[in-house]
Design a protein around this nucleic acid. Structure first.
Lengths: 234, 234
DNA sequence: GTGCAAAGATGCATTGTCTGCAAAATCCTC
DNA sequence: GAGGATTTTGCAGACAATGCATCTTTGCAC
């Protein structure tokens, strides 16, 4: 049993694993301390001590103190990209994205406690919430690339590739490959909108957590997007 | 001629005007210095000196040094909200939003030089770009409220309110007023997506500034959204 | 396993960021 | 223009962040 590069992205040698562990320890310590004492009131010294490293080492992993509170799982976007590449070719880009994100989100349920604490911290510190939101957008560029790749290598008229009901086009002269808005408008927009969809779903669900199932909110958001954000009927 | 609260939000007494002026002076000084010397390498002391106030005063206006680089025009979102309230009732929510944002964006052309410098600064400092993106999202809550208000007070079956071709519904059981996803899913999503649309438009236009007119990119983005982000034809 | 090179961790010194607090200056109301 | 409210400012002090030199650990070859 060689262990190999199993799940959880535990690839590489001892060095990489240790780095991963240290980073995880630091973020976890940061979030737990912040949840208990409030995000400010938590010094870098305290975080470092809790994670068992020196203060100087903390700054080898994060550019600033706040960065320790911002991103919980640095590899999540990598997994989403992979999931998107592995998605069945029959799905539309929007559908494929929806599925990839849904898979990752249900994966996040495993670390439910830490995510809850994180949410709590961000609720109490709007300042950090803003930074978190911004950080998530930084991943978009990579996601857009994968989308472009998926579209580019997609079968022009393959058998199962044409989902029923999608007349292709629908009014906008959308161009993906080499049209006039060519390199990247559509992939970029799709990546950005998908990120937005996740964020809005989470926000809305957090507000009324008792009443709604997350999956339902998530599906409704994507349904609204696919329908072109029609004016609601009352 | 009492002057009143004229354009540019120049309302209130001497105090408010001075505060506005000081804040503007600080952000402008910050951006200009950053464009010249690089964002880091610009100390709070330098910014304060350039704006003619003390260091301590700087921190009365901004919570952190970086905040001075993040938001150039703090009133922009207020103007957008007003424009949305003033928009003709015949427009769909998405259309009304498009028009309101387009108006504000062309307004920003007046300060073109400062915006260019700002863009330059952000390009050189990804760190600040992330914060800027996050900050813009903080405005969404207010925008969503106005959208909800607009929808809520909209005429159920007014004469010109029904745009041809929009069958209302299109598959998703979208509810705005009091359905199951009631208070706020749709307005929130719309506000968020609109912000995303602006951002993507700007990004894409910046990349290929020579070839494309911004207005065209902007229109295409909204067309794609209204069409439900259809899979592009090649 | 011994040795070597690369990468990481640590301590220290230094500079800059940011927060109370109290005094002085400025603006608004009457 | 007197009184009250708000803003600006300086100062002291705690904390954040970076560069540099050093020491430890890991990866790799023999």
């Amino acid at each position: 049993m060689h262990d190999m590069t199993g799940r959880d992205g535990a690839g590489g040698g001892l060095r990489e694993r240790k780095k991963r562990a240290t980073r995880a320890a630091l973020t976890e310590a940061a979030v737990r301390l912040a949840a208990e004492h409030g995000a400010d009131h938590v010094t870098v010294e305290a975080i470092s001590a809790a994670a068992g490293v020196s203060v100087r080492t903390f700054f080898n992993y994060f550019d600033s103190r706040d960065d320790a509170f911002v991103v919980i799982d640095a590899d999540a976007n990598v997994r989403v990209r992979q999931a998107l590449l592995d998605a069945p070719a029959a799905l539309t880009p929007l559908e494929a994205l929806r599925e990839a994100l849904a898979a990752e989100l249900s994966e996040a349920e495993r670390q439910h406690e830490l995510w809850s604490l994180h949410a709590e911290v961000l609720r109490a510190a709007p300042h950090l919430l803003v930074r978190t939101l911004g950080a998530h957008m930084a991943d978009e560029a990579g996601l857009a690339e994968v989308i472009a790749q998926r579209i580019g290598s997609g079968p022009p008229g393959s058998p199962a590739a044409a989902p029923p009901g999608a007349e292709t086009g629908a009014g906008a002269d959308a161009d993906a490959g080499e049209g006039h808005g060519a390199t990247g408008l559509y992939p970029r927009l799709l990546a950005a909108v998908a990120g937005t969809a996740v964020r809005v779903s989470v926000q809305h669900w957090c507000d009324r957590q008792d009443e709604l199932a997350f999956a339902d909110v998530f599906r409704e958001v994507f349904a609204l997007l696919a329908a072109g954000l029609p004016a609601p009927t009352r």
